Simulated scan of single mutants.
Amino acid sequence: MTMSLRHARVRYGPLEALHGVTLAAPSRGLTVLLGRNGSGRTTVLRALAGTVPLTGGAVVWDGADVTRTPAHRRARAGLCLVPERRAVFGSLTVRENLELTAPDHGPALAAYPRLAPLLDRPAGTLSGGEQRMLALARALLAHARVVLVDEPAQGMSPGVAARTYELLAGLDACVVIAEQRLPPALHGTGAFVYELRRGAVVFAGEAAEWRRGAAGRAGE
């Protein structure tokens, strides 16, 4: 159940955000998209999810071309996108947000105990880190086949962030996350890394290989 882009191009008006990007995420395991703002990493997630159309190339899921499959149908087939912003329903309580995904939200509270005393609070009143916990908790409850997350640990404490990466890495799913920097919790893992720069892939390899290359570049 590999999720991949093949020579993907995306345009926002006159600007091309992806210049023929090819990458693949395995059916089980963690893939990290690295890049600064404007590198195209968020656009890659949106292209995989179907929330932005391709102007060239293809999206292939488990061997099938889903380029023209709309986002809601990809979601029904088991794809879950957690965007960087507006990932929860702010006017609903924490409990209601969780129950929209699954009636039994016990596993979500086990993953993020900090949410338990906040169940009756409107999600829009939570801190940024708490909202990320809620968004990730909903993703965990969804039991999705493909999980796409933009900056999963934004606003979280180091301990909660480490727990978040542990949870994502342990999912029985294809997990793709977008980050500006490789999180310390993933340095020693077998996570696969794609580094993007100005809409193109400039590195593809395991996290350890990327770190060695980064250390070499720093020493130049």
Rank of each mutant, 00 (worst) to 15 (best):
M156Y: 08
A116L: 14
R132G: 04
L119V: 11
P113A: 11
G129S: 11
V147W: 06
L118C: 00
E151K: 03
L140Q: 11
L136D: 05
P122S: 09
A178W: 06
A144S: 15
D172Y: 00
L119I: 06
S127D: 11
R163Y: 02
A169V: 03
G170D: 14
S127Q: 14
R121W: 05
L115D: 06
A162Y: 00
T125N: 03
V147R: 07
A162W: 00
R138S: 10
A123K: 13
R132H: 08
G170C: 08
P113T: 09
S127G: 15
V160S: 11
L119K: 07
P113K: 10
L168E: 03
E130V: 01
M156T: 03
P117V: 10
T164F: 02
Y112S: 07
D120E: 15
E166D: 13
A139F: 01
S157A: 15
D150S: 14
E166F: 00
P122M: 08
M133G: 07
P117H: 15
R163L: 12
G155N: 12
A142I: 00
L119C: 01
L119D: 14
G159C: 05
V149P: 05
V146R: 12
Y165D: 04
A116H: 05
G128D: 14
G124A: 12
H143I: 09
D120S: 06
A161D: 04
L118P: 06
D150N: 02
P117N: 06
L115K: 09
V175N: 01
P158D: 04
R121Y: 06
L171I: 10
G129N: 13
A139T: 03
L148R: 03
A173Q: 06
L167D: 10
V147F: 02
L126N: 08
A169L: 09
L171K: 00
R114P: 05
